[in-house]
Amino acid sequence: MSFLKLTASAVAIAAVSAPAFARDNVQVAGSSTVLPYASIVAEAFGENFDFPTPVVESGGSSAGLKRFCEGVGANTVDVANASRAIREKEIKACADNGVTDIMEVRIGYDGIVFASDIDGATFEFTPADWFNALSPKVLVDGAIIDNPNQTWADVNPAFPAQQIAAFIPGTKHGTREVFEEKVLAVGCETTGALKAMEAAGMSEDDAEDACIKVRTDGLSTDIDGDYTETLARIDANKDGIGVFGLAFYENNTDKLQVATMSGVTPTTESISTGEYPVSRPLFFYVKKAHIGVIPGLKEYAEFFVSDEVAGPDGPLAEYGLVSDPELALTQEAIANEQTIASGS
């Protein structure tokens, strides 16, 4: 009975409120990495325009794109934030639900840094160090064996004899993909493990998959939460080394010290020049069908990538975003409402 009444009253309330497309604020969902930037833009947008402040939800790139692809209408989000490019599969899922015209906007780059407790030892990493520390199988004296390394000194004699305790993002994070691709896979290749695996009869794909595996004996911990959790883990275990976003590190320089990668210290400058190797582009996706229907949507997209906001001196760069040198092209694409080719 209660359920019937509930539904009945819900329908009654809904009937009072306005019909579809009555929404007057832009709705954004997606990556928790992009969330800080999107919220900064949304706030400034609300201050500078007569439109209400857009609503930005978090939940992860995949979850955001899934909601984005649910269809067209006031009940679906207008913009999806993503810390990786949209996948073919997702474009297809979108098209199946009638979301065909999608605009892709690259807002800039995000650096991924390795940081440890401020009072601990200082590290100068190379991708090979991380591969040798975290991979379940490593190359020793020409043979692929189970990883024997227990301390950082085992990995590289230049490091202190500190227990390996890595806190890396869990597999549902976009950051993990970058870590695998730009650190583990590169390390696998430079140590020669990739070649050795292929020589041992593995197919190329299998060897590449084996390269990005992470040991499961407890020396590496997947963090499924956000960077605050990684920070708490390092607080509790002073030997810990964690993977963070550049912006998060820059807000917590009193607790963390950053390690160099291949001799380069991560800063917005070294990332924008491409010197610092571990970075990735950040995106948001706009539903073209909503432009002109949801008030302020196009203005929001334009405002997001304007020089004042996303440029090298803008508030986003100040917070830690590495601004895109090709911002002008992005601005033009939005002005022309250029979409990515669908279903290709």
Binding site: N25, A29, A38, P52, T53, V55, E57, S58
Partner: peptide
């Protein structure tokens, strides 16, 4: 149900929109 994020940024315009606005 999506009540976490940068959401509580606008005061609702009216009592009715208080129920439906994000």
């Amino acid at each position: 149900i999506g009540m976490v994020g940068y959401i509580a940024s606008n005061y609702p315009d009216s009592v009715l929109s208080g129920f439906t606005d994000p």
